[in-house]
Amino acid sequence: MIRLVSRILDFLTSEPLRIRSTLRLVLIVLIALLVENTHVEHRNEAVFKAVLAAYAVGSVLWLIFILIRPSRPWYPWVSTFADVAVVIALCIASGPATISLFPIFFLLPISVAFLDSPLLTGVLGLSSSFGYLLAWAFYATQEQKMGMTIPAVVYVQVGCLLWLTAATTALSFTLARRRARVLGLLDVRRRLIAETMRADERNNRELSEQLHDGPLQNLLAARLDLDELRDKPSAEGFDRLDAALRETVTGLRNTVATLHPQVLAQLGLTAAVRDLAQRYEQRWGTPVRVDLEEVGRLESQALIHRAARELLSNAHKHSRATCLDVKLHRRPGGTALQVSDDGVGFDPAILSRRVSEGHIGLASLVVAVESAGGSMDFSERPGGGTVVAVTVPDDLD
């Protein structure tokens, strides 16, 4: 699992750089074709062609290098520095013909958007836009004696660069947020899997202890009573034997119901949720109001029943609620379960911390629901408390 997470992180880090390096080669070809077809005269034609040729060769070698070598954090910064240096060198060599280089100014804000740094994207985008304008202002001042002024189209082009800067900065911000969310989910899943394995071990141990201390001890006591009854039959002995067997049956039935509720398999989800609410109310003494629609037998009923059990259990353990409401209704394409309480409230942001503390019930439920194509939403109840809405598709893939 750790190797899988490492590969995913490496992919997320290296893939944008490879895309960016490939797009750079295409842009170089387009710039060369543009310069060739516009027939502009650069201030120093030989230097301009040498810089562009070196840029093309260096870009090809760089792409090969990052394809065969593992990604490093400093690779994107080296690439960005090289782009800025080449743009400055081409502008100096081109002189007043900088207008033919207008497409290359798109390179900077677009390329740095892959760095997941909105601030850097915005800064370089603005630098590119005003640098293009300042280059024209400088050359216009130098050639003022010849009547040269800044063409109106330059201001339009600067406006296009500013728009591109705003768009790429917004894109970089969105990518950064999504990347952070993906990395957060990967970390939660990694810890969740590790804690699930430990939880399985704890559950097996608790089940073993429950069977050993309950039904098994009752059966041993019943066997001793049976041996005693063979030698000396008595009504009191038969009563003890009957009580021991009844207690054993009750304990085994509760254990089986916990592992797989029979009412769910026999009567369906609605009856199982109603039975769950009644047992919760009887056990903890907290009133539970139900509004349950008959939804029949669903492919997703085990998951929804698990959600109801987990949410009721959490309400008792953490919310200090005095009243609960459980609703079950059909929705287009799915079934919705809603559990609300009048307790102290709940902040979904603590799920990750709860997992690190070993409490995986609710976090694993969120993962299970989302993996099934459903959703789990937390909101505040008017007047205080929490409302949890779980929606799961009827057909699970």
Results as ranks from 00 to 15, higher is better:
E195R: 07
T168E: 02
R190I: 12
A199N: 07
A194V: 08
A135Q: 03
V153L: 10
D187R: 10
G147Y: 12
F173D: 12
G147K: 05
A199R: 07
L115I: 03
L183T: 03
L164T: 11
V188Y: 06
T165E: 13
T168V: 05
S129G: 08
V153K: 00
G131N: 04
M146F: 13
L133S: 08
V156K: 03
Y139W: 15
L192A: 03
S129N: 04
F173N: 07
L119G: 05
A167I: 08
V123H: 06
T149G: 11
V182D: 08
A170S: 09
I193Y: 12
K145Y: 15
A176G: 04
L175R: 09
F114Q: 01
A194M: 10
Y139F: 15
G131M: 00
A170P: 01
A167K: 01
L192Q: 01
E195T: 13
L161P: 00
S129F: 07
G184L: 05
L115G: 10
R190Y: 14
L186F: 01
G122H: 02
A152E: 12
V188D: 06
T141H: 15
F130G: 05
L175M: 14
M148Y: 14
M146K: 04
T141E: 13
A152Q: 02
L171Y: 07
L120A: 14
S128K: 00
E195L: 10
L175A: 09
L192K: 00
T169N: 03
V112C: 08
D116M: 12
T169S: 04
D187Y: 07
G184K: 12
P151V: 09
R179E: 15
L124I: 08
A140C: 13
D116F: 04
A166Y: 12
W136A: 12
Y139T: 02
T196V: 03
G159I: 04
G184F: 04
Y155M: 10
R191W: 14
T196D: 12
V153F: 10
G159T: 14
T168Y: 00
M146S: 15
I150K: 02
T168A: 05
R178L: 15
A113P: 06
S111Y: 12
R198T: 07
A194E: 13
T165W: 04
L171R: 01
V182E: 10
Y132F: 15
F138E: 11
F114G: 00
L162A: 14
F173T: 08
T165R: 08
T121L: 05
R189Y: 11
L134F: 11
S127D: 05
V153P: 04
S129E: 04
L175C: 06
A113T: 01
Q142D: 13
P151Q: 06
T165V: 02
G122D: 10
L171A: 05
